[in-house]
Design a protein around this nucleic acid. Structure first.
Lengths: 213, 213
DNA sequence: GTATGTTTGAAACAGACGTTTGATTTAAGT
DNA sequence: ACTTAAATCAAACGTCTGTTTCAAACATAC
């Protein structure tokens, strides 16, 4: 079927180019050129550039969110009434991300970049899209974190969750650049898994810190 | 003097518009319209849009960096040989930021956004500009953090510093949006100082976390 | 095989962008 | 007052953007 082939090629190219350059900096012409499809194909299949961005996002996020749901369901069935720690929750999320972005590492970067961008654009269509489409799973993760940190006031937990989100989004979306700097500074390689392994205790200790109020 | 007036108005407008919308999304036409100066003035006084962005950055960062230097000098003179904790170092930095962005809160947001962007753009002129111009002060702060965390391996400290940077950059550059979400969720106001007060123990606990390797 | 609906293709569209030009005004120096 | 340099202005430049158009190619069903 010619249709889905073109659609897939566009999504693939858009994904990698968005990850490299960002969204505003990536033109439809560069996407269609790399995908070797006609320029008009984007507007034909997706309607607009905005919708293409959302489609790129959805293609990653939908299976990711289903995987988080499924693994949480499975765990709750096996160990009901068990309260997870923050690190364990993060590990559920991180494992689902790894599985969904299998092979292609850049999918993680583009996902995080989208997440950061969703907050960055003032009247952004992305955050609303995200909020409407995926309220369920994010709400569930929030509840788990709340149960993991009963000592925190709701207000302070709100901010700490966003501190975590910020550290993760910044690190993962700039992973390539940061690893390049690291390699330059230390003359050593450093895998993405290493970085994630270092990130998790940082975040865990952060949310468990003594209150700052 | 007509010159510096035009230059200042351009910088002011650019600063506020960059903070609101980002860089690629802000046109020179919107800047000059808000500044009520001629479109050509930007290229006349700054040369290019890139240089304007760097000028906006420098106007904030230069006094900030001098203030950090000065307050660190003063402290070291009064209490030589005293090893600062991470929170104390962060407080030095944060106080300098507050003093430099006196009155206008948006200057902080734009500064952090620039910092985040410096890492985001692949071949970015901003990171190199930053690295070349302000190597001294950032190196000094790095050394202080190193002394504050002697138990960390250099490699892991590198990453934790960037985790901190990410959490701070994300939170502060999206402060307005996040506060709006917060207000919507909790029906309560929340000052920027409150957020910074909550951020610092989060970062401090994060860098002091047990190693993840 | 003809008709129907879907997908591609090359080309053009209108608009926005950063930048440049050259004339005109403003300010400073002598 | 005259000269010279600096600053402003309106207008245009060429280029790139997302999007639209409409004919050609394709597949599908009868």
């Amino acid at each position: 079927m010619a249709h889905s082939d073109t659609v897939t090629r566009i999504l693939d190219s858009a994904e990698s180019l968005f990850a490299e350059r960002g969204f505003a900096e990536t033109s439809l012409r560069s996407i269609t050129a790399q995908a070797e499809v006609n320029l008009a194909a984007v507007n034909y299949h997706f309607g607009s550039k905005k919708s293409l961005i959302q489609a790129v996002f959805a293609r990653f996020f939908t299976p990711f969110y289903q995987m988080v749901e499924a693994s949480l369901d499975m765990h709750e069935k096996r160990h009901p009434e068990v309260i997870l720690t923050v690190e364990e929750i993060l590990r559920f999320v991180s494992r689902s991300i790894s599985k969904v972005s299998e092979g292609d590492r850049r999918r993680l970067a583009i996902f995080m970049r989208l997440l950061g961008l969703a907050y960055n654009q003032g009247q952004g269509h992305l955050r609303k899209f995200l909020q409407n489409e995926y309220r369920a799973v994010s709400g569930r993760v929030m509840d788990l974190i709340a149960k993991a940190t009963p000592e925190l006031k709701d207000e302070e937990r709100f901010w700490r969750i966003h501190f975590m989100l910020g550290a993760a989004a910044f690190t993962l979306s700039n992973m390539e650049h940061l690893r390049a700097i690291f390699e330059h500074d230390f003359d050593t390689q450093c895998t993405e898994e290493d970085v994630v392994a270092m990130l998790m205790p940082f975040l865990g200790a952060g949310v468990r810190a003594q209150s700052g109020l």
